[in-house]
Design a protein around this nucleic acid. Structure first.
Lengths: 202, 202
DNA sequence: CACTCGACATGACAAATGTCAGACGGCCGG
DNA sequence: CCGGCCGTCTGACATTTGTCATGTCGAGTG
């Protein structure tokens, strides 16, 4: 029984290499490849693969978004996410989106093949180290508004601009940011943005 | 005549896949692999490869630093850098360090093999798109001091801390940062840091 | 119902930041 | 050789930002 795969990664080199490597396994068959989020969705619709192996960072729509759409349209297709930089928050969001597997790109090809089989069998697999990170990092302590304003502050915009974009008074914006900063134990909002990004909370 | 290769990339999956793919070419032979900068250097010393294929981002020391050391220790070994995110400044630094080839990971394996042969023959190859980016981005307009202080400001540290670490008065630090900010056309120093990073100037 | 708690919102005040004008020394072209 | 330019450095001033005290609203609880 062969497992039909969709491979999505924006790096041609990696994707091709991965396809070649997985083709060495007798029971795995790559039926489609994609370089962007939307392309991955289109390919999935066209080929209805058993398992979708998605990179977390892709142009267009990230792996988690693609996974969400995929769960809705093709419930039979299991999703496995592969990522370079494992941020704890991403893992949590991915699992919430119905992703069945989550592994870093540091695993060997052999292990990846095993994980693909595990996921195809209907089981879950999360890389132990990433899981430990996610647990130790815990849930985001930020409220919805705090996270939202932190995102608006991400590119270094001044408070006045954030206030305008969020339709709030500057004082309110400062208050939320200040709250987020103290919750994250940061020096200032910019360091807070950095921390929240690292943990995948924004 | 076979080309002996050193492959360095921190992502096990990618590195293995790449090795498998390059092994398909008759004239290419992967003689060593490494996951970190220092490891790459050690492997290069041990195996004296003809061409070193280095990822730009690795733990320990980045591709450019490794390339610099390699040029000094093994002049016969040509260096080719492969990267996910092509920042113009990195390309410039890489070429200054004696790197002979620079390509993004979006190229196909076939093309990579061609580039390896080109580099091995003593010629240079730079991805046309990255080259165009580098040219349009131009040189860094920042003075040494400005770039240095911008780096110290990178993690959101307050001016007082930067001043202490650089042994300067706070006023001076503000002045350099202000200068850098205006040169980059940014809103404030945090946005400036972001821009400088994007262009590979820090 | 009365109470508490947390999210949301605001303005006033103190601290940090950005901007400005200016001083000093090295370097290059006339 | 000397005048102008650039990089380096500094303190004074206005603006922006962070912190605090305070208030409203709705959800959950005794």
């Amino acid at each position: 029984m062969t497992v039909r795969l969709l491979l999505a990664d924006d790096e041609h080199l990696i994707r091709g290499a991965l396809a070649a490597l997985l083709a060495l396994e007798d029971d795995l068959l790559v039926v489609a490849e994609a370089a962007t989020g939307p392309e991955a969705l289109a390919m999935a619709r066209a080929h209805a693969p058993d398992v979708a192996v998605l990179d977390l960072q892709m142009p267009g729509a990230d792996g988690v978004k693609v996974a969400t759409s995929l769960r809705a349209e093709l419930p039979a297709c299991q999703v496995l996410i592969v990522t370079s930089h494992g941020r704890p928050g991403h893992l949590k969001r991915a699992l919430a989106a119905g992703v069945r597997g989550f592994v870093p790109k540091t695993v060997s090809a052999r292990r990846l093949a095993e994980v693909i089989r595990t996921v195809h069998a209907g089981n879950r697999y999360v890389d132990p180290e990433l899981a430990a990170d996610a647990i130790s990092a815990g849930d985001s302590p930020l409220t919805a508004r705090e996270a939202e304003l932190l995102e608006l502050a991400a590119d270094g915009a001044p408070v006045s601009e954030i206030a305008e974009r969020a339709s709030l008074s500057q004082g309110t914006v400062r208050n939320y940011l200040s709250s987020a900063v103290s919750k994250l134990g940061a020096e200032n909002r910019h360091a807070a943005v950095r921390l929240a990004r690292e943990r995948g909370w924004v």
